[in-house]
Amino acid sequence: MIDREQVLYVARLARLRLTDEEVERMTGELSTILEHIETIGTVDLEDVEPTSHVVELENVLRPDEPRPSLPRDRALEQAPDSDETGFRVPSPSAGQ
């Protein structure tokens, strides 16, 4: 179960602006989905190790050797807003 307040909190964490209609729908949909997910609770998981990865590799390391970086115009090419030196954004301090 998840309530409207939690939906709004999570949406803020995820930087998603939801319309009131979306918040309503999400609250219902997520509750149904989470209800199913909670069937996990029926499994006995006492001292079972979590698996975050199926690969058994360890210590995959890269030699400390420089490779050419992108030319700046290439790096900035896809930016929605930039000046000749970098990516432009509203100042975090401003507004907010």
Binding site: S82, D83, G86, R88, V89, S91, A94
Partner: peptide
């Protein structure tokens, strides 16, 4: 984050540039 002014170039007062 290079904040407006710091960069030494003209920006709208409330914009920053990411390096």
């Amino acid at each position: 984050l290079v904040h407006a002014g710091e960069s030494g170039r003209i920006h709208s007062a409330d914009s920053s540039v990411v390096d």
